[in-house]
């Protein structure tokens, strides 16, 4: 059962992870996000982790996998608000989060996605 609210804002989905997730919760979150993305036909997904003090390697893998899956669905997932301590721990563990773009805040992530989407429609 997914415990994370997934909200729609214009053509984007926003999910803010507030607490540490167990492995089952993380998987449930993953599948619900994928389902919502295809059902609502959204173009961008922002996952905000600014409340998380710890991201373990499993969670990091879930997030990067999620980004790849969303890309297969034709949308784009970005991450916002990674804490400094989290970032340096992940780097120390050898994780790279290469497949997912990251932003300083929810605000800048949303700005980026809307800009990109409007750029695409103009083309």
């Amino acid at each position: 059962m997914n415990i994370i609210p997934i909200l729609q804002l214009q053509s984007n989905l926003i999910a803010s992870i507030q607490t540490e997730l167990t492995d089952e919760q993380a998987l449930a979150f993953q599948s619900e996000l994928l389902e919502k993305n295809s059902a609502l036909n959204t173009k961008g997904i922002i996952i905000d982790v600014s409340m998380l003090d710890v991201i373990d390697s499993y969670m990091a893998k879930v997030l990067t996998d999620l980004a790849k899956m969303i890309k297969l669905q034709g949308s784009k997932a970005v991450l916002s608000g990674v804490q400094p301590a989290v970032a340096s721990t992940l780097v120390d563990m050898g994780m790279k989060l290469n497949s997912i773009e990251t932003f300083l805040s929810l605000d800048s992530a949303f700005l980026y996605l809307t800009k990109e989407q409007s750029g695409k429609t103009k083309k």
Binding site: L79, G81, V82, P84, A87, L90, V91, L97
Partner: peptide, 12 residues
């Protein structure tokens, strides 16, 4: 290199 990677993660 570590600094660059970590900075990219926080979005800088």
């Amino acid at each position: 290199l570590k600094t660059i990677l970590a900075a990219k993660m926080v979005g800088t």
